[in-house]
Design a protein around this nucleic acid. Sequence first.
DNA 1: GTATGTGCAAATTGTTTGCATCGCG
DNA 2: CGCGATGCAAACAATTTGCACATAC
Lengths: 149, 149
Amino acid sequence: MTIDLSKMRQKFREREYKLTPQRQMILQVFMDNRGKHLSAEDVHNIVRQQSNDIGLATVYRTLELLSELEILQKMDFGDGRSRYELNENSTPHHHHHLICITCGKVIEFEDDLLEDLENVIAKNSNFTIIDHQVKFYGHCQECREKREG
Amino acid sequence: MTIDLSKMRQKFREREYKLTPQRQMILQVFMDNRGKHLSAEDVHNIVRQQSNDIGLATVYRTLELLSELEILQKMDFGDGRSRYELNENSTPHHHHHLICITCGKVIEFEDDLLEDLENVIAKNSNFTIIDHQVKFYGHCQECREKREG
DNA sequence: GTATGTGCAAATTGTTTGCATCGCG
DNA sequence: CGCGATGCAAACAATTTGCACATAC
């Protein structure tokens, strides 16, 4: 189900994009960092740590490309930079985020209830829904305990 | 229920912020533009049209302040700039957005179904949810008709 | 009167772009 | 081989910051 190099190779051939080492390297970064929400700079730094430098512009261009191919999913947590993660089980995602207001931690959760909601909304608003992004803001257990402590 | 100048005056006194003409003017812009999602630049332009110039930096600082006071709500539609609107009935909002991928139009919708979802999630994830922000991406009726046309 | 707020311009930050060069298919 | 991809540096756009001056309380 999950994307790997051969899947990516296939997607690239279909669309006649070149599979350069830089692009492979960036995919690898995401495969090595499942569950994290990496910014362009994060990716750039990780690659450099492996002493395999890539131009930052190339990182940006690749992230954009991989998002278009639906290999990555672009997301925004309101911290002023775009973040990306592997788009595990293509669409729809059923995968949302709890953002702790206190410590900024981002927790994932899976859910299907939103599907029903989508249907209701689609009917009421005459809007064809393709994707959704949900963020819940609140306090995580840890911060709550600290505060109440 | 809705915020007006006297409410704002009160909130400002509580926190010992000064109620300057610039700050009042910016609140007025939002009261005159209910339902719109204004960026800092939008606000700046509207004020200038009324031949009452305010420094752009002040606009930014005021938007930040008003968000902190929960008079405004900061939101992000992925167009590279923050947008703000009056935070009508304090928390929780029950007020979400449908974003058309084709034309970029933002449609509002009210909903309560998410409350149930919040409760389930809170229980499952041990997370105290204070607010949520939901964006649905898809095609609005108009664009759909054009495409099928 | 004094701490806070404002305006301006300069600095920062994230991201994009132009162009010469490189290398995948 | 040729065209798309890369790297660099310069350009951009949104936002932030330093500082002298102004003003609400």
